[in-house]
Simulated scan of single mutants.
Amino acid sequence: MARWQPGTRERLQAVSLRLFAEQGFERTTVAEIAAAAEVTERTFFRHFADKREVLFAGQEDFVAMFLDPVRTAPADTPTIELVSRALEGTAAFFPDERRAWSRRRQPIIDSEPSLRERELGKLATLTVRIGEALRERGVEEPGATLAAETAVTVFHLSFQQWIAPDEDRSLQAIARERLDALTALVTPSQNGRTGRS
């Protein structure tokens, strides 16, 4: 019985990640990736516009995982609950089986200035899109922008923890922990002081 092989797109991603880690992102060519994946360069470009897209593919799906829960929430949902719902949407995009890929991907991003810039741009775009979705629901400024920034900050911090070497909790659980910690900072405690016991 023939051994199961992943699809071409997945194989290209796996090979690219290995070569980027071994040789560096800039020193790895599309020709090398295609050869190692046993496909033509033309096949590579059918799946990815360039080698950066191997690391950043799925941008619209990534944004949608935040926006869909916001857009489909009941009309009277409080803004902080909309943030919570947006963060809960990350569970589908970042299941536990994706953690190993994300752990291998991040050092490649961190080692290359142009990739770090692209990653920051992705998060900035996400912030803008969440803000737009909140304003469409009637959330006024500055609340919409603050809530959008909060969602992206909590996500970013949670993701960094999720890919930490010894971490095994779900991204959703980590995000909930961080959002709860933030909420505690701005919620008056029993003695009337914000964020203090």
Rank of each mutant, 00 (worst) to 15 (best):
T72N: 10
V128D: 14
R135Y: 14
A31Q: 15
Q161V: 15
F159D: 01
E112R: 01
A73F: 00
V152F: 04
Q106L: 12
A144I: 05
D50S: 05
V63F: 12
T72Q: 14
D166H: 10
Q23D: 12
E97S: 10
R116G: 00
E60A: 15
N191V: 11
R169T: 04
R11M: 08
A92S: 06
D68N: 08
T145N: 01
D168I: 12
P95S: 14
L134G: 02
A37S: 08
V139F: 11
A181T: 08
R176Y: 00
T90Q: 06
A147K: 00
R105D: 01
L120T: 08
T127E: 14
S158L: 06
R118K: 14
E140P: 02
L87P: 02
N191Y: 09
R98I: 02
R99Q: 02
E140T: 10
A144L: 03
R129E: 13
L134H: 02
L182G: 08
A124H: 13
F20T: 09
I130L: 08
A49T: 07
P188E: 11
F62Q: 15
P95R: 14
L17K: 08
R135V: 13
D68I: 13
P107V: 02
F48T: 00
Q106D: 13
A92V: 07
W4Q: 13
E22V: 15
R169M: 05
T43A: 12
F66T: 07
F45C: 03
V63Q: 12
T29A: 05
L123E: 03
F62N: 15
A21P: 07
R135I: 09
E60N: 15
A124F: 12
R103K: 15
F48E: 00
A36K: 05
R98G: 02
F25P: 01
S16F: 11
I80M: 06
P165H: 12
F56N: 11
L115Q: 02
A147L: 03
L171M: 05
R176K: 13
S84R: 15
G195V: 13
G143N: 09
L157C: 07
F66L: 06
T43Y: 04
G7M: 11
Q5W: 04
E22Y: 11
E38D: 14
V154A: 04
W162V: 01
R103C: 04
M1K: 14
P188M: 15
Q190A: 14
I130E: 07
R3C: 00
T153M: 07
A64W: 04
R176C: 06
I163Q: 00
T194H: 09
T8G: 02
R103D: 01
P78Y: 05
S111T: 09
E119W: 01
A35S: 14
R3I: 04
K122Y: 09
E136H: 14
T90D: 00
E38C: 05
E140F: 02
A144T: 03
E97V: 11
E38R: 07
T183F: 05
Q172F: 07
L157W: 04
Q23V: 10
T72V: 11
E167G: 03
R42P: 07
D76P: 08
Q5L: 08
F94W: 12
